[in-house]
Design a protein around this nucleic acid. Sequence first.
DNA 1: TCAAAAGTGTTAGTGTTACACCCATGA
DNA 2: TCATGGGTGTAACACTAACACTTTTGA
Lengths: 228, 228
Amino acid sequence: MTEDYSQYPKHLVAVDCIIFGFDGENLKILLVKRNFEPQMGEWSLMGGFIGSDETSDEAATRVLHTLTGLENIYLEQLKCYTEIKREPTARIMSISYYALINIEKDIQINEQYNAEWVELKKAPDLIFDHNDMVKDAVARLRRRASTRPIGFELLPEKFTMKDLQNLYEAIFDEKFDKRNFTSKVNSLDILVNTNKKDMSSSRKGSFLYRFDEKKYNKKISQGFMFKI
Amino acid sequence: MTEDYSQYPKHLVAVDCIIFGFDGENLKILLVKRNFEPQMGEWSLMGGFIGSDETSDEAATRVLHTLTGLENIYLEQLKCYTEIKREPTARIMSISYYALINIEKDIQINEQYNAEWVELKKAPDLIFDHNDMVKDAVARLRRRASTRPIGFELLPEKFTMKDLQNLYEAIFDEKFDKRNFTSKVNSLDILVNTNKKDMSSSRKGSFLYRFDEKKYNKKISQGFMFKI
DNA sequence: TCAAAAGTGTTAGTGTTACACCCATGA
DNA sequence: TCATGGGTGTAACACTAACACTTTTGA
């Protein structure tokens, strides 16, 4: 006996992206103002339906590319939301993805979507269950940030210790001690000092560092665990 | 302008369950031998399609109930697998769930599915991407077990320290020091000694403990963090 | 010479790991 | 009385958290 699939219902399945960015001070998310019904004019996450010949990862990548023009974005699947009435007009499942992008890269935000970077803490109410999605994404981001070096996805290639600390403080919404933070990071031994200085923030200038991915991967393969 | 959903493709969406159990010694998973095509006769996870009027959580609960007769099973969504060719006969997305059940509860395993408990370490090759699902589920179980008191879902209501240690050793596939384990667990202060003894394992007998969920919840609300 | 941010060590406390002997009991 | 598993404490070590002063430099 072969399974007869025609007896089973089919579903609309979308992806929604929680796009994180960091401006040196605050953690932000990229939101779009809907220019179509339902809920036209309200804020939401950027999303799109999954096509019949693409995976959800591909759909999320496509959606991000459409909005930002960027490729090779850090992307991770979060969760599938399947409440029947999560959207009022039809039963649509949605797989949420969170993305980390370097806000300084010259992004060509597609005008057509009315997209805007908003501070995470000041984000407006979103439609449907998108507020939940953001909450879940922040929780995941915190967990990941403490066990994987994903923070660097949010920073420019070269950054100061202060930038890095600001980032972690923004992610965890918590202040850290400068000396403890620096020595913790240094003890990980996965940054290289470029010996260049950023002179914009002080007279003395502060050293610019780079994440050494090769070294990190080598250490990982030797049993090293990132932990911050 | 209102969205016209008819232009978007619909998809078959299933759930697949990684069902963990513990027999006092080994971590096991409940597998079924397929009695339908494709891949009839091969081992797979228990699964089922999501209906049009049920959420994925409900579908997973239904699938588990159908197989085991149990209700109120600990269940957590894991991940949505969407590779186009993950099943050979049709494009089917699948949301994986992992479940924890107390193997000693008198489960009425539904005969019709040829289900069997197999040791995790000795599990046979599974169809499709079910091996990946199991791998992901084990990773999640380890993470959860170290930060949430979910281990108790796998044990009978009363258990000895040894049982608990055996369980954690099985989950993490690692031996722990008996004294350190006991004092760690005791320091959490979320177990109660029932002052009854299990006399089956030794002449002296060993105390039976119970997880004090109320106390745990109270401690959690006061900022306590489970960590093992 | 001063204002402003960068850079840098030490100490106390807490948690983690390693380790071995006595206890209670039924046979 | 002995064989078996149950139960228990301590010391070294590693990690974490708290804390303040000196350096550099452009204005």
